[in-house]
């Protein structure tokens, strides 16, 4: 991976300009942010990755253990459980949030009296206290007295799921809650993206007789691709490292049914003091997300050159 990256070709540099000038100008833009990023995030992160090959209790001198942390990983049932749960969460959270956020943004990107109120309302879940989120959603999902199951009963479902009190249905409940919470956040990004689409395109399409649905597919979606790509990548990353909502809502339970990788990293590191092992899990998580991100970049590249 590292080699593939260093080999990457210059993106078809324009003629007449010497390469060093591009490098100089490019880096001069990037440097202010990169310096801060490298010093305060990248270096500690590399140190943490180095820890993956060590045994360290945060205090005494670390001990070189080679791949022992990774061997331990392979035989750790908790790791597999967390890995599976993380993928299940991401698999539900990413598409659902994407659709909900895009739907909200398109619905609220118009001159409508009071649209500001609705946009604010859509963003509110993201700024509502997590305790409130957990208490209210868990109440909605209550197996016996919760409105969700009462509704299902009314629909004729005799044996509705027990949601957060069941190992099979806790994750779906968490996903629904997290979609509700995050949709406003990504809506803001889509709203900004929608502003780049020239009004004239829609006017022209209307003259050609395209209906709302066709305009969405032929204009909105293609023009929104850079934003959509950004949202998809960010959603993927954030889903794979989800932590706070799960901690407050189910704390990984019941049993281990909603235990995710970030939680395991936290527990093994700060709580248990096995910083080497914790870093090894973090490194695996990093590689997974990097792979997914590279694939997304490639796919996006292909579809944009089509």
């Amino acid at each position: 991976m590292a080699q593939a990256m260093t080999r990457s070709a210059p993106g078809g540099s324009p003629p007449k300009r010497p390469a060093w000038r591009g490098i100089l100008i490019g880096w001069s833009f990037i440097l202010p942010n990169f310096l801060g990023f490298a010093l305060f995030t990248l270096i500690p992160m590399l140190a943490a990755f180095a820890l993956a090959f060590l045994k360290w209790d945060s205090y005494n001198s670390p001990e070189w253990v080679g791949a022992a942390n990774f061997r331990r990983l392979l035989s750790d049932e908790n790791f597999y459980v967390a890995l599976r749960n993380t993928f299940a969460y991401a698999g539900g959270h990413i598409p659902l949030t994407l659709v909900a956020a895009l739907g909200l943004a398109v619905a609220l990107d118009r001159k409508l009296r009071g649209v500001q109120f609705f946009r604010t309302a859509a963003f509110f879940p993201y700024i509502t206290s997590l305790v409130a989120v957990a208490v209210v959603w868990n109440m909605l999902f209550n197996p016996t007295a919760g409105p969700v199951n009462q509704f299902l009963h009314a629909l004729g479902v005799d044996d509705p799921p027990r949601w957060v009190a069941s190992t099979d249905w806790a994750m779906p409940a968490v996903i629904v809650t997290s979609v509700w919470r995050d949709m406003g956040y990504y809506m803001v990004l889509f709203l900004a993206g929608l502003q780049t689409i020239p009004k004239e395109y829609y006017e022209a399409a209307r003259v050609d007789g395209a209906n709302t649905w066709q305009r969405f597919w032929k204009i909105t979606l293609p023009c929104l691709r850079p934003t959509t790509f950004f949202v998809v990548v960010m959603l993927t990353i954030q889903s794979f490292k989800v932590l706070d909502l799960i901690v407050v809502m189910t704390d990984g339970g019941p049993g281990r049914s909603t235990l995710v990788l970030s939680q395991l990293i936290y527990r093994e590191g700060i709580t248990e003091g096995r910083f080497g092992y914790s870093s090894a899990i973090a490194l695996v998580l990093f590689v997974i997300v990097l792979t997914v991100t590279v694939v997304q970049f490639r796919l996006n590249e292909r579809s944009s050159t089509r």
Partner: peptide
């Protein structure tokens, strides 16, 4: 601005967000 190594650097930038 186009310069060699730009996209690799960018990808590395993004990927670091993934580390909790």
């Amino acid at each position: 601005v186009r310069f060699p190594g730009r996209d690799a650097l960018f990808l590395a930038y993004i990927a670091t967000i993934a580390v909790p």
